[in-house]
Design a protein around this nucleic acid. Structure first.
Length: 327
DNA sequence: CTTCGGCACTACGACCGCTG
DNA sequence: CAGCGGTCGTAGTGCCGAAG
């Protein structure tokens, strides 16, 4: 005999309340009033004839009965989400990835076509965001984060450490001779990254010029951006010499839109990490994307090819495709 | 001790969709 | 079309902790 199930919404309400430990917070997530959530949970308890929550002066704790079914309930809602996604995507699987916007634009998007070639049945929904999405309870499958690599409750795998070095567009010099030594920066406009990390120090032009042993260059004047991708874009458009992130500059260096005049680079305290919930780490789609990302992070960008581009000249052969001929 | 704000909870009624 | 179940909002009450 099939047991009659309680209303789906009451199960949903209980699951959300169990996560928030507050009816009010649960109500916000469900976009209803707290009274509605209370009624839903009470209806579920009445239906089951069991108390699922133990009322305390502030908040709740789960009873043994509530705890017993909770994980099954969460798994069931996960499966429902997957089922809905499958129905709305014509059988195509969709992987939702949250990544810092700058890396998304400059590093990830130019590479995604290779993932599609390897996994044609798996689509990627990219969600650029600085926010640290809750990967255990949201519908986001994977995150790409920039930081120290310590993320409680998550599997964290390093993609690469970041380093910064000067880059500029060939357009900037307008026929003048290319930069041969750091002293040639004198008189050129500099582009700055204005970003204060929560921990550690983000190096700037002052640090780089000191490391290069250069004096007489104003390390504080110039355009300022809080986003690394905008710094790179400003350099590409010929507005100055930027102290750019390697990860964000690679594609432009490979394409010849930027030139790296000097080998000297500053290592930062930070790295890019791919993260996912420990409980979901073994899911095949998530594992495939992580494997692919890590392989991409190790992959060198293709050397500048002598290919014809619309309105462009073939690029010359260079021993180091990312360095100017001054090296 | 009183006041106040936040929260949980209940009663009641309105609305909607399904069913016979 | 009426009855019913499910869902939700409003209004009101009570409890608790923090602040004065």
């Amino acid at each position: 005999m099939r047991r009659r199930l309680p209303p789906l919404n009451s199960l949903r309400a209980f699951e959300v309340v169990s996560r928030h430990d507050s009816f009010r917070a649960a109500a916000e997530e469900l976009h209803v009033t707290a009274a509605a959530v209370i009624q839903q949970v009470k209806a579920l308890e009445d239906h089951l004839g069991r108390k699922l929550l133990r009322r305390r002066s502030r908040g709740y704790s789960l009873t043994a009965d509530g705890l017993a079914g909770l994980q099954h309930l969460r798994d069931a809602f996960e499966q429902l989400s997957s089922a809905v996604a499958a129905m709305t995507s014509g059988g195509q699987r969709i992987l939702t990835v949250s990544a810092v916007p700058s890396l998304s634009a400059e590093w990830l998007v130019p590479r995604l076509h290779r993932f599609r070639e390897q996994y044609p049945d798996l689509d990627v929904l990219l969600h650029p965001s600085e926010e640290l999405v809750d990967l255990e309870h949201s519908r986001v499958d994977l995150g790409i984060r920039y930081g120290s690599g310590s993320y409680p409750g998550l599997i964290s795998e390093r993609l690469f450490f970041d380093e910064i070095f000067p880059v500029y567009s060939p357009r900037l010099l307008k026929g003048r001779r290319s930069l041969k030594n750091p002293g040639d920066l004198r008189g050129l406009p500099l582009i700055h990254t204005e970003w204060t990390p929560e921990t550690g120090h983000w190096p700037g032009w002052v640090d780089w010029l000191r490391a290069a042993g250069v004096t007489g260059v104003s390390a504080t004047k110039g355009l300022r951006f809080s986003d690394g991708a905008l710094v790179i874009q400003a350099a590409v458009s010929g507005q100055g010499v930027a102290l750019g992130s390697k990860a964000l500059a690679l594609e432009h260096l490979a394409a010849g839109r930027l030139v790296r005049p000097f080998r000297l680079a500053l290592l930062t305290d930070f790295a890019y990490y791919v993260v996912c919930a420990k409980t979901r780490a073994d899911e095949p789609d998530l594992a495939a994307f992580r494997r692919w990302l890590i392989a991409e992070a190790k992959r060198e960008p293709p050397p500048r090819r002598a290919q014809s581009r619309p309105g462009g000249r073939p690029a010359g052969r260079r021993r180091f495709p990312y360095l100017s001929s001054g090296e």
